[in-house]
Design a protein around this nucleic acid. Structure first.
Length: 386
DNA sequence: AATTCGGGGGA
DNA sequence: TCCCCAGAATT
C-alpha cells in the first residue's frame, strides 16, 4: 500500500493502479456517444465544450442535434452565430457556444482547418483550458496528457487522502501532479476515460461503492474512513432572492409579441426576452436599468406604454403566471403580467428601444421560435398558451 | 483568490 | 431543499 500516489508511490504501485483501472473499465466503462469516434478531435471538442459544468445526461441530446447540424469544423465555421446559439438554447453557459464557434473559425484561419495536437496551440483556442487540452490530446491523439475534472478531482482526492479544500491552489497543483504521474503511457486516452468513469459510477459524491472499487486497496480515504469527508469543499453561500415582473404585450392586429434584445455583455448576452422589470432584491439580469423607477407591479401598466412609445396600451396588473428560476447565485421569482396594444398604427410597428438594450420589436409566433431566449422566458411563453 | 457565466437532475 | 455537474475567463 502507498501513502499517496504523488509522493511515496513506486512504479509497481502506479502500474498496479493503472491495470486495475483499465481492467475495471473493460467491462464496466460507460458507453457515451462522443466515444463512438474518439479519435475525431472535432467531436471531442464539441462534447467537452458542452460538458463544462454540465451533466452527461443533459448533454447527450444536445450533442446529437448539434453534430447533425454541424458535422464538421468547416460547417460550424461557416454557420451564422444565431444558428449556433439556437442549437445551444437551454444548455446554459452560452459563452461556450460562441467560443466553440470562434474556435472553428480560428482552426480554419490559423491551422488550415485541422485541429492542432500541440498543447500550446490548443490552449490558444477560445474556451480551451488545461482540462480540455488534455482531453483532446489524450482522447483524440493518444498523447500521455493528464486531465483533472469533477470526477477525477473527487477520485484522486480520496485516493491520495487530500484533506485540504480541493479548489485551493496547492491542492490543485498536487492533484494535477498526481494525474500526471498516474496517466498510463501506453493508452492514456482510455485510461483517462476509465478514471472518469470510475469516479462517475463507483467513487460517487455520496455513498461511494468502495466494495466494488478496483483500487480500494490503494485508497487513503477508504483506509482511513474518510470517503464521506473527502473531497473538502468550501461551504457555498445561500442564493440571494429577487423579484421580477415580465409583461406579455400582444399587438392586437397580428397577435405578435413585444420582445427585447439584451445587451452584448453579461448574462444571456444578445438573447431575446420579454420586457421584464426589476421589483426587489437581486437583479442578476440588470433589469433595474429598464425603468428602475418602476419597482412595483402597480406602476407597470402606466410605464409600459410610455417606455416603448406606444399608444393604447392596456396591462392587467394581476399576475396569473409565475416562474421560479435560479441563475448563478440568485433565486428569482418572476411574475407575469398581460397586456395588449389595441390599435394598429405606425407607432406600434416600431417600439422605442430602452437605453442599454440592443433592439425592441414585435415578433410573430413563428419568428419567436427561431430566436434564442432564456429558459425562464421560454417557460413563460409555454405556460401562456398561444 | 473570487466571481461570473445556466440549467437540470438526483438524493 | 441542497448539492453537484468532463471548467474557463475575467476581475
Amino acid at each position: 500500500m502507498i501513502e499517496a500516489v504523488d509522493r511515496n508511490s513506486n512504479q509497481a504501485d502506479l502500474n498496479a493502479i493503472r491495470e486495475a483501472v483499465l481492467g475495471w473499465h473493460a467491462h464496466s466503462g460507460r458507453n457515451l456517444p462522443w466515444r463512438d469516434d474518439r479519435h475525431d478531435p472535432y467531436r471531442v471538442l464539441v462534447s467537452e465544450m458542452m460538458l463544462v459544468q454540465t451533466t452527461v445526461s443533459a448533454v447527450i441530446p444536445y450533442y446529437h442535434k448539434f453534430l447533425a447540424r454541424f458535422p464538421t469544423v468547416e460547417s460550424l465555421a461557416g454557420a451564422p452565430e444565431p444558428d449556433v446559439l439556437k442549437h445551444w438554447e437551454g444548455l446554459g453557459y452560452y459563452r461556450r457556444a460562441r467560443q466553440l464557434h470562434q474556435m472553428a473559425r480560428e482552426v480554419t484561419d490559423r491551422f488550415g482547418g485541422t485541429i492542432p495536437a500541440d498543447e500550446a496551440d490548443l490552449l490558444s483556442l477560445p474556451g480551451v483550458g488545461r482540462y480540455i487540452a488534455g482531453a483532446v490530446r489524450s482522447f483524440a491523439f493518444d498523447q500521455p496528457a493528464p486531465i483533472l475534472e469533477a470526477n477525477t478531482i473527487r477520485l484522486l482526492a480520496r485516493l491520495t487522502g487530500t484533506k485540504e479544500e480541493v479548489t485551493s491552489g496547492s491542492a490543485q497543483k498536487r492533484l494535477w501532479a498526481t494525474a500526471e504521474s498516474l496517466v498510463s503511457p501506453d493508452d492514456p486516452g482510455t485510461f483517462n476515460q476509465a478514471l472518469m468513469d470510475l469516479g462517475a459510477e463507483v467513487c460517487t459524491p455520496r455513498n461511494p461503492d468502495c466494495s466494488h472499487c478496483p483500487i480500494a486497496d490503494f485508497c487513503v480515504a477508504n483506509r482511513e474512513g474518510l470517503t464521506e469527508s473527502i473531497p473538502v469543499r468550501l461551504a457555498r453561500k445561500p442564493p440571494t432572492p429577487g423579484e421580477e415582473a415580465a409583461v406579455v404585450l400582444t399587438r392586437a392586429s397580428d397577435r405578435s409579441i413585444l420582445l427585447l434584445e439584451r445587451p452584448e455583455t453579461g448574462l444571456w448576452s444578445s438573447f431575446w426576452e420579454l420586457p421584464t422589470f426589476w421589483i426587489s432584491g437581486a437583479d442578476p439580469a440588470r433589469r433595474a436599468s429598464l425603468g428602475a423607477s418602476i419597482a412595483t407591479p402597480e406602476k407597470i401598466p402606466q410605464a409600459v406604454g410610455h417606455l416603448f412609445g406606444l399608444d393604447s396600451v392596456d396591462v392587467e396588473p394581476a399576475p396569473r403566471v409565475t416562474v421560479n428560476y435560479v441563475v448563478t447565485r440568485y433565486k428569482m421569482f418572476l411574475q407575469v403580467m398581460f397586456g395588449s396594444v389595441r390599435e394598429t398604427g405606425r407607432r406600434h410597428d416600431t417600439p422605442n428601444c430602452p437605453d442599454g438594450w440592443k433592439s425592441a420589436r414585435f415578433v410573430s409566433h413563428d419568428d419567436m421560435k427561431k430566436l434564442t431566449m432564456p429558459s425562464a422566458h421560454r417557460k413563460v411563453l409555454r405556460k401562456v398558451d398561444f
